[in-house]
Nucleic acid binder design. Sequence first.
DNA 1: ACATTGACCGGTT
DNA 2: AAACCGGCCAATG
Length: 108
Amino acid sequence: MAKTDMQQLRSDIYDIVEQIPRGRVLTYGDIARLAGYPRLSRQVGHLLSTVSPSLHLPCHRVVNAAGRLAPHWPEQQRLLEAEGVKVEPGKDGTARVRLKAYRWALSL
DNA sequence: ACATTGACCGGTT
DNA sequence: AAACCGGCCAATG
């Protein structure tokens, strides 16, 4: 994967995340597939971690495939709940969302 | 070059 | 539901 492709992936990610409707969520894997790089879910996560808040990108609507929220970002839960996404703590205390209910419906 | 590290994924216990 | 496992790949030291 060349550096230029990473730049391309970054802008594609921005486009996709920008279109996630209020109250819905997507997974890193979903975004990687939509961008055309189905095996780069980890890179998607890393790129999103370096997004400047000034872009007003709704990256709080991105969770992992288990519905778990991003580490090192406690704020995310409050942002999701503010738009009606229910976040319930599991037995171990880790917060999760029900993908079955909130995942942005896509034809994959 | 080599090893380790992640905002990860899917299948199998 | 959760733990475990093997795979994944750019970035980093």
